[in-house]
Amino acid sequence: MLKRHAGWVIAAPATLAVIIFLVLPVAATIGTTFGDPDGLFAAYADFFNSGFRRNVLWRTLEISLITTAISLFVGFLTAYVVAKSPGRLKSLLIIAAVFPLLTGVVVRSFAWLIMLGKNGILNNFLVAIGVTNEPLSMLYTQGAVIAAMVYLFVPLTILTLVGVLENIPEDVVQASASLGATPAATFRQVILPLAVPGLIVGAVLVFTGSFTAYATPQLVGGERQMVMGTLMYQRAMVSFDWVGASTIAAIMVVLTITVVLAMSRMARRLNPMAT
């Protein structure tokens, strides 16, 4: 009797905490979006009827998908090198990769202000070597936001992928070579599929992180590169439009879940072992 319910008993406190602190607030937030007197979906119609807001949504999706792709690519290559390095060098490389994580998001985004500003390091350098006569305006562009966010998320992807790549047994890779697979074929047919679970975890982390990012787009992108996070802040804290902000939040939740589900579907297609 006790045994049969033991699982529930053990899980109860955590379940309760999740319901009280996560499900209820989110439900309440989303609930308010359906309370508009003009109709159940009026708040959403409002959002999607605004070209500006549609633009923000589109830009956010674009920025976070590009950030995810670049972070995974860079992270994968780096993780591959790290995983192949001998012991001592490996720990050193991992520490180097993790090091930026020791500072805050704001500090790291600020670094990009210094790098990309009109009087920044990059502009001074470009002018010095004569690539350009005048400083370029690189801040407050989509590229700047993406660069800053990639910088933010690459350590995360490296960490996830080093573990996965290290777990690919050496002899499986050798088996592939012994069966005549070129290094490229081994990479495509063995290493990549076996790394898929890690790639998915990385993709989910980076996508959710960059889709909901606030500080980085605020600092590096400013008003010109408004994204969902900054738009929501503006709705709530500048315009005091709580329903509008909640609507944005609801759209973000739904989109994030959709993309995460799509990613795990893709993973299953590439690798039947991934869940």
Partner: peptide
């Protein structure tokens, strides 16, 4: 043709 000690089959 190589048969490995731990078989080294492709798990995927």
């Amino acid at each position: 043709g190589l048969v490995f000690q731990n078989y080294a089959l492709f798990p995927h």
